[in-house]
């Protein structure tokens, strides 16, 4: 009975949360279509006629290599990567706090447990992130199909990379951006409940820009830039470390949020 109450509440959250993001998903679709088109153009210039789904995916989420401030080369913000992160940050921006002060009060008195509210928002967060990556995957799939190579193989020739890894690189390429986005968006959701959605957005974007400048395991934005993975000779981020840190960030954000939400007075912040 209690489980079904939670399931019904979760269903409501997914329905309202995903519906409220329709425009932002459409924006993400436009962005990935544009990026796919740009990659296709670059391929034709390089006289490559086909490219796999994974190559498209890599193109979207490659970010930039490790920046060395002492090199004298000016730092260039990785705009493509930042725009993707901005769209993801917008997707998780305000549904939880808006829900809390609109229909959320009606929901809370009906589900009777604050922990249900927070848990449901965490699941909504996961689903929201997975959806945007699904949009990216579908775009990659369609464009690679047009080019006649529907496969998950990764060919590093086009990107001029050297692999330092013998195992399957595919897992890293697909897992790291998704897992890191979930971790960052969990922190963002926590800050939006602690402070305000707009603060959480600004903090996350600043953090990501700093992540693109400094390569450090503490700055987890680095984990979602594939070029910074140590599986390539230009990268420094160890896959196992990144997965462990991401998972810990997700778990701690969920626990801190639960702890906080169970105790907080629900009064609209001025």
């Amino acid at each position: 009975m209690k489980n079904s109450l939670f399931i019904r509440f979760l269903r409501k959250d997914l329905f309202l949360g995903l519906n409220s993001n329709k425009t932002r998903y459409f924006l993400s679709l436009l962005l990935f279509v544009y990026l796919s088109y740009m990659f296709t153009k670059e391929l034709s210039i390089a006289e490559n006629k086909a490219s796999s789904i994974t190559n498209f995916w890599f193109y979207f989420f490659q970010g930039i290599g490790v920046y060395n401030p002492s090199s004298g080369v000016p730092f260039v913000i990785p705009f493509t990567w930042i725009i993707i992160q901005v769209i993801i940050a917008l997707l998780v921006l305000n549904y939880p706090s808006r829900d809390l002060f609109t229909t959320g009060v009606q929901s809370l008195i009906r589900i009777k447990k604050r922990s249900y509210w927070w848990t449901s928002k965490c699941i909504w967060n996961f689903v929201t992130i997975i959806f945007v990556y699904l949009v990216a995957f579908i775009c990659a799939f369609i464009f690679s199909a047009f080019l006649g190579e529907i496969s998950l193989n990764f060919s590093d020739d086009f990107f001029c990379l050297q692999k330092n890894y013998n195992g399957s690189i595919i897992v890293i390429i697909y897992l790291m951006p998704v897992l890191t986005s979930i971790a960052i968006s969990m922190v963002q959701m926590l800050i939006s409940i602690l402070l305000k959605p707009i603060y959480s957005f600004v903090i996350v974007i600043c953090y990501l820009i700093v992540s693109s400048y400094y390569c450090s395991p503490i700055l987890i934005g680095n984990y979602s830039m594939l070029l910074r993975s140590s599986v390539f000779d230009i990268g420094k981020i160890n896959f196992i470390t990144a997965v462990i840190v991401d998972v810990l960030v997700i778990i701690f954000s969920a626990i801190i949020g639960l702890f906080y939400f169970n105790r907080v007075d629900i009064i609209k912040k001025g």
Partner: peptide, 27 residues
């Protein structure tokens, strides 16, 4: 318990009936 605290707040793009249906679907 049923409450109306401060101003009523619902999802702006849905009708009154749909708003209440969504809330009622929880219980």
């Amino acid at each position: 318990i049923g409450v109306l605290i401060e101003n009523p707040s619902f999802v702006p793009r849905y009708s009154g009936f749909k708003n209440l249906k969504i809330i009622a679907s929880i219980q």
